[in-house]
Amino acid sequence: MNKLTTVLITLLFLSFHAYPQRDQAPQGPGSLAFWENLSKLCGKSFEGEMLNASENDQFYGKKLVMHVRTCEDGKITIPFHVGDDHSRTWVLTMEEGNVIKLKHDHRHEDGSEDRVTQYGGISSNTGMARLQFFPADQETTDLIPYAATNIWWITLDDTTFSYNLRRINNDSSINVKFDLTREVETPPTPWGWED
């Protein structure tokens, strides 16, 4: 057997075993596996870092902590603490058809809602167990017209959770990566929420 044949057989073998075959695909929609894996983090807090922060960024130089605070039937809340600012909470809800909705709940320190709140999107399909996309919904477009092209996405695996935002036709993005291998102290109750 010549070298070329050996290389081709090796590549064929590796490609066959590196990717699951169709009949080995996970059963059920990816959104349910994603939801189940995220629910396993309930009650835990993790520190994160901006992957592309500049000195002009509002998150620059601040401690970033996510806390998977509640996991109710069909709803998961994740406060995102930025230093001493406890105004942000990501709210994920499971919609009919097994798609996930992401909303951003913004509050003032007195608990009242910010003028810009409840924006986000609904996944366009059931997505994948480790990745969910959320294109801006109509409520977001009505509230913040320039955010009509926003796409948020969350990745989740055994060691990291990432929150990401990209606006189509704009080079800027937000990418925050959290280390799931090390729990941190639970932050204070987010503004406007009760224990």
Rank of each mutant, 00 (worst) to 15 (best):
P29K: 01
Y146E: 14
G28V: 06
L51Y: 02
W35S: 04
V184L: 03
D114T: 03
E185V: 09
G83F: 06
D23L: 12
L102M: 11
K75N: 06
H17D: 09
W90H: 14
H86Y: 15
D110Y: 04
P29H: 04
Y19T: 15
L32N: 08
I9K: 15
H106W: 13
E183P: 02
E96Q: 12
I78T: 04
T181I: 00
M1S: 15
S39P: 00
Q58W: 14
T89K: 00
L51T: 11
L64H: 05
E139Q: 13
P29T: 03
I122A: 01
C42G: 03
P79Y: 00
W35Q: 01
A33C: 06
C42R: 06
I168T: 08
L32I: 12
R182F: 05
V7Q: 09
L92A: 05
H86W: 12
C42P: 02
A148G: 09
Q27R: 13
V68R: 01
T141Y: 02
D110A: 07
I151R: 04
I76M: 04
V82Q: 10
T126Q: 13
D23S: 08
L11C: 15
D158V: 05
N2M: 11
T159V: 05
D73A: 13
D142L: 09
K177H: 10
R130D: 13
E95P: 01
R115S: 14
D171W: 09
E55Q: 14
P190V: 08
S172F: 10
I144L: 15
N170P: 03
V99C: 01
D142Q: 10
D137W: 00
L51H: 08
D171A: 11
A136K: 00
F161Q: 02
T189S: 11
G83Y: 06
L32M: 08
S87Q: 12
E96M: 02
A18M: 14
E55Y: 07
R130C: 13
R115K: 15
R69Q: 10
F161M: 11
W191P: 04
W193E: 15
R22Q: 15
L51D: 05
T93Q: 03
D137I: 00
T181D: 00
N56V: 09
T117C: 12
G127H: 07
I144V: 13
S124G: 11
G28F: 07
Q118P: 00
G120H: 00
G61K: 07
R22E: 15
Q21P: 07
V7F: 12
G43M: 03
V7Y: 12
G43Y: 01
Y146I: 10
K103R: 15
I174P: 01
I144P: 05
H106F: 11
K103Y: 08
D171I: 09
V65A: 02
R69V: 00
Y146S: 12
W35R: 04
E96R: 12
K40A: 13
W191K: 03
L14R: 04
I154G: 02
H86A: 02
F161V: 08
G97W: 03
N170A: 13
R167T: 09
D57N: 07
T159E: 10
H106K: 10
L64D: 05
D105E: 02
G120F: 01
N150W: 07
F13Y: 14
V116E: 10
I144K: 08
F178S: 06
T155E: 12
